[in-house]
């Protein structure tokens, strides 16, 4: 295999927690604080890995399998994700469906682990998470389908490779709409404002956070790293759609992709600092709106 194809995976594994650091730092700066250092997520993960885990007597093996399986599925999804124009480590026609499926699998395992604790709050969070993702997933798939139709590629790598300046000149409006839809899905899937607040620790308002409330130590480290990788994967898709830098060789493309990713992390931080969270009943509307944008993008392509 071409060693250059390992580049996006290496970047993702190494730099994903830094993305969370950039989001948090942006939020701190906008709020007028200095904020934690960029490497804080790495330190958190390191600290958690050195701790021991506590398991409730009511939980079964499902609870222990949740973080491990979730991280494994997310990692598999990351191997399919191209970085800007740089090709992904693994790609084959139709891998965009597998991408969505692996992320759904990761979510399913997290939900199972949450339900396994028997806590009423975790069940409520799981119910909300599944409800939102049921609406976010069609938006993601339709947006990817629109991009596939615009570029003629059937794998994520082909799609990302085809989204250069020429594609933007050809069908700019629909690419813009698809990128907007992907951005909305990114915010929803990564438990970001306006859908969910990653900082809240009030049981009634948490969605994603509440599901991992009972995990501790190494398990929580895996959950944290998994969520960083998930943010990386969605961010990479968004950058591939929105940043038409295609030089043709892997290294500059990957560098541009990493730059775009950190820019999108800053954007997420700014969105989080300037927007209030949506009322819970308005969230499905936000996601259906994203789906409508994606469908519109799909329709507009090639007209």
């Amino acid at each position: 295999m071409d060693p250059a194809r390992l580049l996006p995976l290496a970047f993702a594994l190494g730099l994903a927690p830094l993305l969370l650091g950039v989001v948090n730092r942006t939020k701190a700066i906008v709020a007028g604080r200095r904020g934690a250092p960029f490497t804080q997520p790495y330190r958190d993960i390191g600290k958690l890995l050195r701790k021991g885990a506590v398991y409730s007597g009511t939980t079964t093996w499902l609870f222990r399998a949740g973080p491990v399986g979730g991280l494994a599925a997310t990692l598999a999804a990351v191997t399919l994700t191209p970085l800007g124009g740089a090709p992904a480590t693994v790609s084959f026609p139709g891998d965009l469906v597998l991408f969505a499926g692996l992320l759904a699998l990761a979510r399913f395992l997290t939900v199972l682990a949450a339900l396994d604790t028997g806590s009423a709050f975790e069940g409520m969070g799981a119910s909300r998470e599944v409800q939102f993702s049921a609406l976010a997933e069609p938006a993601l798939l339709v947006a990817l389908a629109a991009l596939a139709r615009a570029t003629g590629g059937l794998s994520l790598t082909d799609i990302a490779g085809g989204l250069g300046a020429a594609a933007w000149a050809e069908s700019g409006p629909s690419l813009l709409l698809a990128a907007l839809a992907l951005g909305a899905v990114l915010l929803a899937e990564n438990a970001r404002i306006p859908v969910d607040d990653p900082n809240t620790h009030l049981e009634l308002t948490m969605v994603h956070e509440v599901m991992v409330l009972d995990h501790g130590g190494p398990d929580l480290a895996l959950v944290l790293y998994g969520s960083a990788l998930k943010l990386w994967a969605f961010g990479a898709l968004l950058v591939a759609a929105a940043l038409p830098v295609r030089t043709g060789s892997a290294l500059p493309d990957a560098a541009a992709g990493v730059g775009g990713l950190f820019a999108s992390a800053v954007l997420v931080g700014v969105v989080e600092s300037t927007m209030a969270r949506l009322r819970l009943v308005r969230v499905p509307q936000f996601l259906v709106g994203a789906g409508a944008l994606a469908a519109l993008a799909f329709v507009l392509v090639g007209k």
Binding site: A169, G172, P173, S174, G289, L293, L296, L300
Partner: peptide, 24 residues
């Protein structure tokens, strides 16, 4: 090639969806 008219029409379609979802 996308003409300006296409872009405007896409914008109009977006405003339609916006109006369908707007609560204020």
């Amino acid at each position: 090639m996308t003409s300006g008219a296409d872009a405007v029409l896409a914008g109009v379609a977006v405003t339609n969806f916006w109006l369908l979802g707007a609560s204020r």
